[in-house]
Simulated assay, not measured.
Amino acid sequence: MTDVSERIETLAERAHRDREAFEPPSNPPDEEAALTYLTEGVGDVVALYIDARTGEMVRFTDAEFVLLEQALNDWLELYAACYGADLDAAFTAREVAELVVDTHSIRESALLLTGIPERDRRESWSHADT
């Protein structure tokens, strides 16, 4: 369990650093940064959650869940901010993980959860989705 606790703490620290360092794009969207927050942030949280749930059925403590979900929501808010949108994210690790498993796409999952980007921006996405 120590390994999972350390991984959660590392994710929480990274999310906090990302929030602190974030500067809104001067001309949104910054799709590259948005995708980075999804893949290297949200994706890491989802991967940890799925690994923990499908491996040894690790039980997270309440404090670990708070840290994990705060990191997840921090990165989703940064993703939205890259499109010039404000988001008060309050998603659970479970709902995001289930959506990623269902859609097979972190990007599509973020869109379904947040509604960001708006329809006209989605058309610029390539079919080679992440």
Rank of each mutant, 00 (worst) to 15 (best):
A33C: 03
A33G: 05
L35H: 14
L35V: 09
T36G: 07
T36V: 12
T36F: 08
Y37C: 04
L38V: 06
L38T: 06
L38Y: 02
T39F: 09
G41E: 06
G41M: 05
V42Q: 02
G43R: 05
D44C: 07
D44Q: 12
D44F: 05
V45R: 05
V45M: 04
V46Y: 01
V46Q: 04
V46F: 02
V46W: 01
V46E: 04
A47L: 07
A47M: 04
L48D: 10
Y49W: 15
Y49F: 15
I50E: 14
I50H: 08
D51P: 10
D51W: 05
D51S: 14
A52S: 15
A52L: 09
R53T: 13
R53V: 08
T54P: 03
T54S: 12
T54Q: 09
G55D: 13
E56L: 12
E56K: 13
V58I: 14
V58M: 07
R59H: 15
R59F: 15
R59Q: 15
F60K: 10
F60L: 13
F60M: 11
F60N: 12
T61Q: 14
D62I: 11
A63H: 09
A63N: 09
E64F: 07
E64M: 08
E64Y: 06
E64D: 14
E64H: 07
F65C: 14
F65E: 14
F65H: 14
F65P: 05
F65G: 10
V66S: 08
L67A: 15
L67M: 14
L68M: 11
L68A: 09
E69F: 08
E69S: 13
Q70A: 10
Q70C: 06
Q70T: 14
Q70Y: 06
Q70P: 04
A71M: 11
A71P: 14
L72V: 10
L72A: 09
N73M: 07
D74K: 02
D74T: 15
D74I: 10
W75C: 04
W75Y: 06
W75I: 02
E77M: 00
E77C: 00
L78I: 01
L78C: 01
Y79A: 00
Y79V: 00
Y79C: 00
A80F: 00
A80D: 00
A81V: 04
A81L: 07
A81I: 02
A81G: 13
C82D: 02
Y83E: 01
Y83I: 02
G84C: 03
A85W: 01
D86F: 08
L87V: 05
D88I: 11
A89F: 01
A89R: 00
A89G: 06
A90V: 06
A90Q: 08
A90N: 11
F91P: 10
F91H: 15
T92W: 00
T92G: 12
T92C: 03
T92N: 02
T92H: 02
A93Q: 06
A93E: 05
R94N: 13
R94A: 13
R94W: 03
R94E: 15
V96H: 01
V96M: 03
A97L: 06
E98H: 10
L99M: 12
V100K: 04
V100P: 03
V100M: 03
V100Y: 03
V100W: 01
D102L: 13
D102N: 14
D102R: 15
H104M: 09
H104Q: 11
